[in-house]
Design a protein around this nucleic acid. Sequence first.
DNA 1: GGCATTTCTTAACTTAAGTGAACGAGTTCC
DNA 2: GGAACTCGTTCACTTAAGTTAAGAAATGCC
Lengths: 193, 193
Amino acid sequence: MENALFGFISNYISLTEDEKNILLSLDIFRYIKKGTILLKEGQKSQDSYFVLKGCIRKYYIKDGEEKTTAFFTELDALTPHCVASKNPSDYFISCVEDSIITVSNPDLEKEVNSKFPKFEIMCRMLSEELLAKHQINFDEFKTSSPEQRYLSLLQNRPDLVQRVPQHQLASYLGIKPQSLSRLRARITEKDKE
Amino acid sequence: MENALFGFISNYISLTEDEKNILLSLDIFRYIKKGTILLKEGQKSQDSYFVLKGCIRKYYIKDGEEKTTAFFTELDALTPHCVASKNPSDYFISCVEDSIITVSNPDLEKEVNSKFPKFEIMCRMLSEELLAKHQINFDEFKTSSPEQRYLSLLQNRPDLVQRVPQHQLASYLGIKPQSLSRLRARITEKDKE
DNA sequence: GGCATTTCTTAACTTAAGTGAACGAGTTCC
DNA sequence: GGAACTCGTTCACTTAAGTTAAGAAATGCC
């Protein structure tokens, strides 16, 4: 599992064996059971997550309903908004499957950054990459219908459609579970023709 | 107009008179006429924009229709995706009103950053702030109906509803102009009760 | 195993957005 | 001044998503 982490990092910077060992000594790996809630609405947390294996989910509760806005799977990083804003969180984060993640916080990051300045470079690259991806996602969401969004999800993240409960997927697509069922039936019907 | 720029910068870092003069000497101010297209789909550009006065708009052309995904008004910054990716742009950027903007590019930024290292700090703060705002916007868009989105726009950016053509606003809300008209009529009807 | 719960699907009905067309009010351009 | 356009609105009709309810299938829990 460490190799997954080091493999990811090596896309951005190179680490010596010594540096790897220091990272390992920080005890950042966590094994999380499906269903575990990592962050609750109203909570102030300093924890950032990085998924090595599994899937975690970000959702709001609005009018008593769960509204899922993001899934994070292998090699996705997630820093909740409340970490920077220092306000209570607006949303929940929970574990969709049994997962292996690393947990970090600003203090730990400062420590690592001072030991390896190249870490900061990686963080900047990551945040730029993330902002760009986000904007593209947002634009695609805005300019598509629910059906188009579902089809593009099938193209781009086919694993999600399999591993995530349909009702969570529905709210991720901005519709109700019943509508997703119907939409899927409609597509299958079209395929038959 | 320079004061608007320096006022904005002073939220992040402080500049000496000398530093201000160097910035002014770079000749970055542009006066853009309403309707001017700053970036076209398919074009490779290195220009980033910062709006001092006026309004610029980002839009896609999908199935022959303009799909507006963002408006940038006073003190908003916009670095098109193509600057970092070095690929042709997927979208257009055009000027909604006569506007005053600053235009920059990576070379110029490198030059400024080497002269004033604190500029880089500002850029990092800005990009983090932007990413956070973006995520919140995205989540709000995803978890709302068109009517809720319109009402929240009235709350948060009431000026936009006034200064931007309705059909551009409609596509920004993810609906057709006719639907926006209807939706507005519906709301006015409700208010009468 | 068996009971309860969750998850997914289907159906009937309601509501809102998409579509195509038409009209009036402004603009722009000769 | 008048023709051509753009823009916003309204209307009638279509299509798709929301709602409510019900039932089947899978899962979890004693």
